[in-house]
Design a protein around this nucleic acid. Structure first.
Lengths: 209, 209
DNA sequence: TATTTTTTTGACCATTTGGAAAAACACTTG
DNA sequence: CAAGTGTTTTTCCAAATGGTCAAAAAAATA
């Protein structure tokens, strides 16, 4: 009788429908931005009526919030995997590869994140200054020690990380531009493969001690 | 008696007000996206009433379109300046510097552009596949010849250009994230200077023949 | 100063949109 | 089957928003 809202799903139908809604919302939000998306669009994409959707999430904001929260976990994972005891250049190449794969396989998530940052991260600020900063500081420390041990060339570790984020996410966030510039032949599915090759070679050259 | 709309400004007042409107609109659009911005917001930021604003631009779309058109010219300029007869590494370093300066001095323009790309470039497609692609192809040719002449290291010229776009624009588009991660001390005004230094050194190392 | 042209305002409107309420329906379980 | 619980639909609403229009006010011009 009462709305379900943000409580944990209790029934099979709740789990299913909430999932379908979130998936549809990811489509719509990542394509049109938060204000550019309507509940009706999301509901239609999820194959249900608006009031029905609002039975599972009590507001547009709540859908978005849920999406953003999940996103942040996905976002942090690849960086966390960098292993101080691994071979430095291989660790960095692996990180780049994982990030390019994310651009290829999760472009909607990437764009949702980009949108959030672009508009000042109103719902993400806390986490940026908290978990994200901590993790980046930690990994920057790893890079710095690698540099001191002459395992990789010396440079600013924070900006190094920024550059990896930027170059890899570019292929999801600016996908239209990339495809337009590469043209029909080179802009096909192979573009991620080409990008990964370019970036791996490029970073290897730049960071070789 | 008639609305002014897209005709060229005829009076002093028209030139002034249109300018004020475009400046305000750049603020609002770059911060909230197209659908996230209202004519009222823009009008208020421009210090006039909504109907008054609509006397100078006949619709929200027209303001946006005007802004986007100007943007594209600004956007192409720095790349066009790369000179095939210059010293390759210095030319590339100069391009990076100009792009970083744009992120520092024209962040609103950068974000407006990013927003447009993120949402599929509905109003820019033609120009991406036309002018932009042509210019990039041309400069990719320059890079390729430099590589053949062993003046810079061999790599994919298109992806090289993408990487420069990505790394430099990142400091405008993801400004919140950059500042949050760098923290209060390192995230101050010096961040663009640090970024420029990092990128210049990085690209020089990677491209040194 | 009188007249014409440009600019500004105030009132208004149609549509879209986020969301509420309650009745109708479906499913499970005693 | 009856009764409760969970789900869906129908109807509705208030606020926000893009945009219009005619009249008033200001400028420019004769």
């Amino acid at each position: 009788m009462m709305a379900i809202a943000q409580t944990k799903p209790r029934t099979r139908i709740q789990a299913e429908k909430r999932k379908r809604i979130l998936d549809a919302a990811l489509d719509i939000f990542s394509e049109n931005g938060f204000r550019g998306s309507t509940i009706d669009q999301i509901a239609e994409a999820a194959g249900m009526s608006k009031p029905n959707l609002l039975y599972y999430f009590k507001s547009k904001d709540e859908i978005h919030e849920t999406l953003i929260h999940r996103l942040l976990e996905i976002w942090l994972a690849p960086l966390a995997e960098i292993d101080e005891n691994g071979e430095p250049l291989a660790e960095i190449a692996g990180y780049i590869r994982r990030k390019i794969e994310m651009s290829r396989d999760l472009p909607r998530e990437s764009r949702l994140f980009a949108n959030e940052m672009l508009h000042g991260a109103p719902r993400t600020m806390g986490m940026l200054e908290g978990e994200l900063k901590s993790l980046v500081d930690e990994k920057a420390g790893v890079f710095r020690r690698w540099m001191q041990q002459k395992k990789i060339a010396k440079c600013d570790p924070w900006h190094l990380i920024f550059s990896i984020w930027a170059t890899t996410q570019h292929y999801a966030d600016f996908d239209v531009q990339v495809r337009a510039v590469l043209g029909p032949e080179r802009g096909g599915d192979g573009r991620f493969y080409d990008a990964a090759n370019f970036l791996e070679a490029f970073y290897t050259r730049a960071l070789k001690p």
